[in-house]
């Protein structure tokens, strides 16, 4: 469930795009410094958003520097190097969440994927231990999320709302950790809840056909199991409506936050990025997937 929170690039100004990129590179660098080179692989757009949100709320002054990229030493990248605390927090979230993602894969996948996930989990073992020590509260949140999710998935007919609850609550609690006064914490709780819910639901909607085929757990498959007569477009429309409503709730809480930095970028992600991702996952990728599987069936 990583990588759904992205800005819409054509709508960013060049300097905003550069800032976003340097925050991304800055987070990568901090993860590398704190948890070693392998952990840099856990870098995601979602955690970049988290780091930028913290910087924005805390008004951590930003300065840029140029260093060589680890992945491509020939290229010099701009790094946004201030905001150490926000990067450290987002980095720990990234490492811990990835670790538990593997745990989740081990629980509900076939033999080969399971073995691969076990190996990868071993690889991240040490960085996870380190992050756990530095931020026990994040560890606790992630652990609760995974156990509650497993509990809910035991019920093969679980609805959309209860299925989204563990992720929504986890993101909500994570966001509450970064608030500084009571009002802000209350807003962040709502914002986080709906953002987490949106992330969970877009992931579920994105995997709809894959999960339906392999009969894996998916709340949307559960929902439409009984109405066989609905066509794919109607299903996509229903998922889209649920996501719209969730996004609208997240955005109205987001508008109440007092953002001191990176405001246009964060607004781009919330106001355009979410909608763009819905369009991409529900109406573009899905159509391609269906066309491909149609062609396969015909050739068989």
């Amino acid at each position: 469930m990583f990588g759904y929170l992205r800005p819409v690039k054509p709508e960013l100004k060049v300097r905003e795009y550069e800032t976003y990129k340097s925050a991304y590179c800055g987070l990568c660098r901090y993860i590398g410094m704190d948890y070693g080179i392998i952990s840099r692989l856990t870098l995601s757009y979602d955690c970049t958003l988290l780091a930028m949100l913290i910087m924005s709320l805390k008004n951590e002054s930003v300065n840029f520097s140029q260093k060589r990229c680890v992945l491509n030493p020939l290229k010099k990248c701009c790094f946004c190097l201030s905001g150490g605390e926000s990067y450290r927090f987002a980095g720990a979230v990234s490492v811990i969440m990835t670790y538990y993602k593997f745990e989740d894969i081990i629980l509900d996948s076939g033999f080969f994927k399971k073995t691969a996930a076990k190996l990868l989990k071993l690889l991240f073992y040490r960085s996870h231990e380190k992050a756990k020590k530095a931020y026990p509260e994040i560890e606790e949140i992630a652990k609760t999320m995974v156990t509650e999710q497993a509990e809910i998935e035991k019920n093969k007919n679980a609805g959309i709302d209860p299925s989204a609850e563990p992720t929504a609550t986890a993101v909500s609690r994570l966001c509450m950790l970064i608030g500084s006064d009571d009002d802000e914490i209350m807003i962040l709780r709502e914002f986080g809840y709906y953002l987490g819910r949106w992330i969970y639901l877009i992931d579920a909607a994105d995997d709809y056909f894959k999960d339906k085929k392999s009969s894996s757990f998916n709340p949307f498959v559960n929902k439409f199991k009984k109405n066989e007569e609905l066509d794919n477009l109607e299903i996509s429309d229903y998922c889209n409506a649920t996501l719209n409503h969730t996004a609208a709730m997240a955005v109205s809480a987001f508008n109440l936050l007092n953002l001191r930095l990176h405001k246009p970028i964060l607004e781009n992600i919330m106001n355009l990025g979410l909608a763009y991702m819905q369009r991409k996952c529900l109406f573009i990728d899905k159509r391609k997937y269906l066309e491909r599987s149609d062609a396969n069936e015909r050739s068989v």
Binding site: V8, P10, E11, D237, N240, A241, T242, L243, N244, H245, A247, A248, M249, V251, N271, L274, A275, Y276, Q278, R279, F283
Partner: peptide
């Protein structure tokens, strides 16, 4: 109110225009 939120006020509306590439 709930129908309004679902139909893409601020979200994505399949029938509406959306500026992108």
């Amino acid at each position: 109110r709930i129908k309004n939120s679902r139909s893409g006020v601020g979200g994505y509306d399949r029938g509406g225009n959306f500026v992108c590439c």
